[in-house]
């Protein structure tokens, strides 16, 4: 069964605004081809202020699709249209205290419905440019279409390169067979053959210090190791125009700042999950990676 947060369950069992909104003047109907789910978002917009006075939805979909729709309507009620358009799918996922990586597309569908509804209100035509494929890398939520396009656009030849460009395969590494398959397919189009030996010839990142049990490491060494893991991930993030910095380490929680492209990236939480996975594997203990904005000492911590 999916590991849904309590908030997701609450919004599924008790959805907010699940109704046909009478008098709606902005309606967005979208569906996700990857899973077949579909959503109608209805907005009642004040023509004077462009404020969203009320919102309603109808969803044909799974638990997280219904919960994402419910969360979306709660988030945007009272916002102006321009404010609402700045709501990212990550905001929807955060509002629900996270979604499983396979279910992130449910929040993407919510965001698309919002864009479609605003376009409908403004009398514009909404077109979607986002094609979604089968999820390959579950640690960083990267799908096959993105990997394939990136390989083609950048003439990539090894799994390591794919990881550097897309982050796919940078976590638990169990999707490497899938990535090799995509590499083989794209290279075959050019009449080339994927050569795993070429990938192996690339220098591997220096192995971390011999694994020791969590208890045997001094606090100083432990922090050093956390730093080293984060450092090893930064080049991949920088390739995407983003970055990550450690702000604090409190017991088992590492607080980080996502900056640049990462801060607004739709996949920020998946990225955090991937970093967390690497830390857990390297340190051999459970580590939680949390955005610094959620650090309890700062009073601004949001729920």
């Amino acid at each position: 069964m999916w590991d849904y947060s309590e908030k997701v369950k609450d919004h599924f069992y008790n959805p907010r605004n699940a109704r046909v909104l009478e008098g709606a003047n902005g309606v967005g109907d979208v569906g996700s081809i990857s899973c077949g789910d579909a959503l109608r978002l209805m907005l009642l917009v004040d023509p004077e202020s462009e404020q969203i006075l009320d919102a309603g939805f109808q969803t044909f979909g799974c638990g997280s699709a219904i919960a994402s729709s419910s969360a979306l309507t709660e988030i945007i009620k009272g916002m102006t249209l321009d404010e609402a358009l700045r709501v990212s799918n990550q905001d929807i996922a955060d509002y629900l205290e996270g979604l499983p990586p396979e279910k992130m597309h449910c929040s993407v569908m919510g965001r698309e419905a919002l864009q479609a509804a605003v376009a409908n209100y403004r009398g514009e035509e909404w077109k979607d440019d986002h094609e979604e494929g089968a999820l390959v890398c579950k640690c960083f939520a990267v799908d096959a279409v993105l990997i394939e396009e990136t390989i083609r656009a950048n003439d990539l030849r090894s799994v390591e390169e794919v990881t550097n460009y897309t982050k796919a395969g940078g976590g638990c590494s169990s999707c490497h067979e899938g990535i090799e398959e995509i590499l083989g397919k794209v290279l075959a189009e050019k009449g080339e053959v994927f050569n795993p030996a070429a990938a192996a010839s690339q220098p591997k990142p220096a192995p971390a210090i011999a694994a020791t049990t969590g208890g045997g490491v001094s606090p100083f060494q432990r922090i050093k190791r956390i730093e080293r893991v984060i450092e090893s991930i930064r080049p991949q993030l920088r390739a995407d125009g983003g970055d990550v910095q450690i702000v604090d380490v409190v017991d088992k929680t590492v607080y980080v700042n996502m900056t640049g492209a990462c801060s607004g990236c739709q996949l920020a939480s998946a990225t955090l999950g991937g970093i967390q996975q690497r830390l857990i594997e390297d340190l051999g203990e459970f580590i939680k990676v949390v955005p610094a904005s959620k650090q309890p000492v700062s009073l601004g911590a949001g729920g």
Binding site: V30, S32, A38, R40, A116, D128
Partner: peptide, 22 residues
């Protein structure tokens, strides 16, 4: 469900739900 209204599928009442698939 957006495919359903009151007592039956919306298609039967004449205003079918046809979302844009992405």
């Amino acid at each position: 469900s957006p495919y359903w209204s009151d007592n039956g599928p919306v298609g039967e009442s004449g205003r079918a739900f046809a979302p844009t698939y992405a």
